[in-house]
């Protein structure tokens, strides 16, 4: 799979982009939740959480598009 990923003609698909966005979203949500326990701007923590949520949701909507090139 990895070898195929790095071939000359390989293109990332909408589904893979979706997975990428879900991953980034989950990381952002976890970071936002972790920072809620500490100090820092509440506004930025909420922005991080909402941004993560938006990224994950967008990613989810891309999953059904399957192997269409991203």
């Amino acid at each position: 799979m990895l070898r195929k990923f790095f071939t000359k003609d390989y293109t990332v698909t909408k589904r893979q982009l979706g997975v990428l966005l879900i991953g980034a979203g989950v990381v952002l949500i976890l970071m936002g939740l972790a920072s809620l326990l500490g100090e820092g701007s509440r506004l930025l923590q909420m922005a991080g959480l909402l941004g993560g949520l938006a990224s994950a949701l967008t990613g989810l909507t891309l999953l059904p598009l399957g192997d269409v090139p991203a």
Partner: peptide
Amino acid sequence: LFLRNPRRCL
């Protein structure tokens, strides 16, 4: 570049 071709991006 990554979306278009990960190898070329790298």
